[in-house]
């Protein structure tokens, strides 16, 4: 109803202004729209759009220490295929991502506990679980380096009290990646809990009551009702978790220094990219590494979207 009146009234109201600029109402709206997005797109053009194209270009270039750049086609990509360091980095990133996925069941467990009806001190628990999320990863890495220390770290001390021999967490291949991934879980758990908790709160309680009437036990209700109902949230958390894990840099960089005997065996894709691009200054090859990272993230995410048909229920 107002649709027919509003434009006419509007043009009356704007009558004085539109005589200065002979623009129609639609043109004025479009112009305003462009003005509103202009600052963002100016910045993005220089700092994001151009760099994406430039990274693709660089990945086909041989760059020297000095200015020169020569086109070398797929040379870097072929080199990637038989670069043992790159394979090592990819395997490590994959291990890190797989271990990191344990965060999801842990978050479901704690979110379910926090979702207990009428639970007291809820916000107190939420704050404690969330504290690591806001803590600077650099600081987290430094603290856990001490916690993991073979001789004077409290973790091995705890193991000793339970009768286990000390473990050299950060100086053995594979174990170092698992150990750092565990720190990643510690620092991200609170966030996953909050996301899954908000999913749990959308499950209507009468569904549970009905199932309870029908004689379903708590575990059965959890696996048959709650889990399928929140599966879209779980899927989202899992996808974001894997993407984040494949890009891990901070914790590895801090916890595995160049003095570490397994430094070379503990690199991930992004730490290797950092090494090649900013320590060895081989920009062309580093660009090829980062383009491969993009391809890898797209493939893994695509795979997850394909697999979701088997377990995610959209109501």
């Amino acid at each position: 109803m107002t649709d027919t009146v509003a434009p006419r009234l509007r043009s009356v109201a704007n009558g004085a202004k539109s005589s200065c600029f002979a623009l129609s109402e639609r043109q004025r709206e479009a112009l305003t729209g462009y003005l509103f997005i202009l600052p963002l797109f100016l910045g993005a053009a220089v700092l994001f759009f151009y760099p994406i194209l430039r990274s693709f270009e660089l990945s086909f270039m041989q760059t020297g220490v000095f200015k020169g750049e020569t086109f070398v086609g797929l040379k870097h990509y072929r080199h990637l295929m038989d670069d043992p360091k790159m394979w090592q980095a990819m395997v490590n990133s994959m291990i890190y991502a797989l271990v990191g996925l344990l965060e999801v069941p842990l978050a479901i467990f704690f979110a379910s506990l926090l979702n207990t009806p009428g639970l007291r001190f809820l916000s107190f628990y939420r704050v404690l679980f969330f504290l690591p999320v806001v803590t600077m990863p650099t600081a987290v890495g430094m603290v856990w380096q001490l916690l993991y220390n073979v001789d004077y770290g409290p973790i091995n001390q705890g193991l000793a009290l339970a009768g286990f021999p000390p473990v050299s967490w950060l100086t053995q291949p594979v174990i170092v990646i698992v150990a750092v991934a565990a720190v990643g879980i510690w620092s991200g758990l609170g966030q996953s809990i909050i996301l899954i908790l908000s999913g749990l709160q959308t499950v209507p309680p009468d569904l549970h009551e009905a199932a309870e009437m029908d004689g379903a036990g708590p575990l059965q209700r959890f696996f048959r009702i709650t889990l399928p109902m929140i599966s879209p949230t779980i899927f989202l958390v899992a996808v974001l978790n894997v993407i984040k894990s494949l890009q891990v840099f901070d914790l590895i960089y801090i916890m595995v220094g160049p003095k570490n005997p397994v430094f070379d065996q503990a690199q991930t894709i992004v730490t290797y990219f950092f090494e090649v691009g900013f320590v060895e200054h081989d920009r062309g090859y580093a660009a090829a590494i980062v383009i491969s990272l993009l391809a890898m993230i797209m493939m893994v995410t695509g795979l997850q979207f394909y697999l979701q048909k088997k377990w995610v229920h959209y109501g």
């Binding site: 993005a44 220089v46 700092l47 994001f48 759009f49 151009y50 760099p51 994406i52 430039r54 990274s55 660089l58 494949l246 890009q247 840099f249 992004v270 990219f273 691009g277 900013f278 920009r283 580093a286 660009a287 980062v290 383009i291 990272l293 993009l294 993230i297």
Partner: peptide, 20 residues
């Protein structure tokens, strides 16, 4: 186009941004 910026891993910008 904006969504594309969001999807791409951040690391892809680093070398060109340094050049700029």
């Amino acid at each position: 186009m904006l969504l594309a910026i969001m999807m791409v891993p951040r690391e892809i910008y680093l070398i060109p941004q340094t050049e700029i």
